[in-house]
């Protein structure tokens, strides 16, 4: 009787399947290439997946709310360019704040158009992606900006706190922030409700347009945070993001177990997805597999993830 009052974490089916799969996969990679488990490589892996993790946190919010953000990588690139250009005028801290601000504003614009015009997130974010990319190209004259302050590179890019890379810690902090928002705040509940059944959410008294706007603004802010980590890591702000980054963020979210139709999933799913994609890329790099085949492999994994999503939905009913 008493357990009716408890909130229990339930590990069923896919919940344990993913961590087990990741462990087995990493085990196999380690057998084939023992260097995989070396401290140097694990550090490398942690740094590699940091920007994707942060972007995927933002992406997860839009997917859980029943939407999608195809502009997130372009917004990240624009934030990076704008922030680095601002550094000479407002200093390093101001530049970083500028990155987050630009990301948030771009996201807010996404959310504003989607919620006010009730337009499809697919098209709106695609349009904003194009606009963001264009502005970044115009601002940077089409070339990467290398005027990244050395402090940024040495602290966030390659610095460590307690032996762990700072950029990875930033990514973990964003995961924690996302988990906190989703699980322990009214806003998080509303995000789930809007993604679960928008009409029911609206009629039960939720301010759906406001929630939608905040969700996309949050995704944009994550784009800005990712820009900080990215520019620190590569010591440059590229006007055009690494191709396929947006797609990878969606893949990570869905692969990890967030329902593509919205209303379910959490930050641990994002972590699973990012770990699978990251380990895969890392292993392929170490095994010397050509980047062409890497793109192919990622494509296959994305299709597999979507199939898994459909399968999960069928098994739920």
């Amino acid at each position: 009787m008493k357990d009716k009052y408890k909130t229990k974490a339930r590990l069923v089916g896919t919940e344990i399947a993913m961590p087990v799969f990741i462990a087995v996969f990493a085990g196999i990679v380690a057998l084939v290439e023992p260097r995989f488990l070396s401290v140097a490589n694990l550090r490398n892996l942690a740094v590699q997946i940091a920007p994707l993790t942060i972007i995927a946190v933002g992406q997860a919010f839009t997917v859980i709310a029943g939407g999608l953000d195809l502009s997130i990588a372009a917004v990240m690139a624009l934030s990076g360019v704008a922030g680095i250009l601002a550094v000479p005028h407002v200093g390093l801290a101001g530049g970083l704040a500028c990155m987050i601000l630009v990301g948030g504003l771009a996201g807010l614009l996404n959310g504003l158009i989607i919620s006010r015009l009730r337009a499809s997130p697919l098209i709106v974010t695609l349009g904003i992606a194009s606009i963001a990319e264009a502005i970044a190209l115009i601002l940077s004259n089409g070339v990467p900006l290398y005027a990244v302050p050395g402090e940024l590179t040495s602290t966030i890019g390659f610095g460590r706190i307690l032996g762990i890379n700072t950029s990875f810690l930033v990514a973990l902090a964003m995961l924690a922030l996302g988990a906190f928002l989703l699980r322990f705040t009214v806003f998080g509940r509303y995000v789930y409700a809007v993604g679960s059944n928008q009409s029911a959410a609206f009629k039960s008294g939720i301010n759906v347009p406001l929630v939608t706007m905040l969700v996309y603004a949050f995704a944009g802010v994550m784009g800005g945070v990712a820009a900080i980590v990215m520019t620190a890591w590569v010591s440059a702000a590229a006007p055009v993001a690494q191709p396929g980054l947006t797609l990878q963020s969606i893949a990570a979210v869905v692969l990890g177990g967030v329902l593509l139709t919205g209303g379910a999933g959490g930050m641990r799913h994002v972590l699973y997805g990012v770990l699978v994609l990251g380990t895969m890329t890392n292993a392929m790099n170490m095994l010397g597999i050509s980047s062409y085949y890497q793109i192919l492999a990622i494509g296959i994994v994305i299709i597999a993830a979507v199939s898994l999503d459909v399968f999960r939905k069928q098994s739920r009913t």
Binding site: V186, R189, Y192, S196, A200, G263
Partner: peptide, 20 residues
Amino acid sequence: ANLVLPTRSIRENLTISRLG
């Protein structure tokens, strides 16, 4: 169509209008 949040728990469905 208008009431149930199908992917959420009984509790979340119940309390969604009075989370304040």
